[in-house]
Amino acid sequence: MDEHNEIGRTRDALVQSVMARGRTLRRRRYAVLSATALAVTALVAGGIAVAAHDDGGKVRVDSPVSPSSAGPVDSTTSTTTTTPPATDSTTGSVVTQPSGPPGASTTTDDRCHNSYDPACGPFHWAPVPQSTISVVFSPARPVVGDTVTMMVTVDGLTMLGPSGVRCDSNSQFPFAFDDVGCTWTYHYSLCFPPPQDPPRYGLWDPPPASPLHWVWSVRSVVTGPIPPSGNVPWDVGVELDCRADSPYQQIPEASGVLHVDPAPSTSTSTTATTTTTTG
């Protein structure tokens, strides 16, 4: 009993100690925020004073445009499309400008465009390049013994080209593209980010890239037996431009369901071939 009470006291002491430390951290954070707010207020007041002086006594304060008011969100996605919001290249109009990381500067000031100034906030690419992906099975409704082709098509922009394809199926169905060639391939020497010295801040233009139209396919023989539903769900992801600092480092993903019909007899072997076309 005494031991139990002792443990309880120790636990309570720990909780109180942690909360006391947390309050100290919170006060410190508020102090920093207050000091920052005061500094910003002083700067704005100074700016207004200068504007009033320069503009014949007329006070004008321009507010930066927040990303959320920049325009409607692009909703042109489908089950086979991954679209990080970006510029609509066909019309040239901005469909969606992705917001930067928390705390990112929202100013459109050129000083914070491709900047090395820490005052410009966290580094981020803008616009984020857009890509689309689709997966198609052929034939669409195979029977056991058929050879099925899964074709993955990716369109977008890249500097290096796709670095790998991943296929997943939660089905226990013994018909597995991922066993027969639908696996990641790597370009290790290219995937490590180059050193960034000095570090970048604020909004940066993505570097020049080439259009990508990439078609990849894999064939496999349906071996059965088939689960009662006959549906085999597939998820496919393609990694574009594996370098960590590349704006084209995306993993567009697509999902598809292959419906397999039963057949009187089933094969026991699985074969596959892989073809790649890059355009």
Binding site: L14, S17, V18, M19, R21, G22, R23, L25, R26, R29
Partner: peptide, 10 residues
């Protein structure tokens, strides 16, 4: 303990 103190602060 430090992680939970920071958690408590937020």
């Amino acid at each position: 303990a430090e992680a939970l103190a920071r958690t408590y602060a937020h």
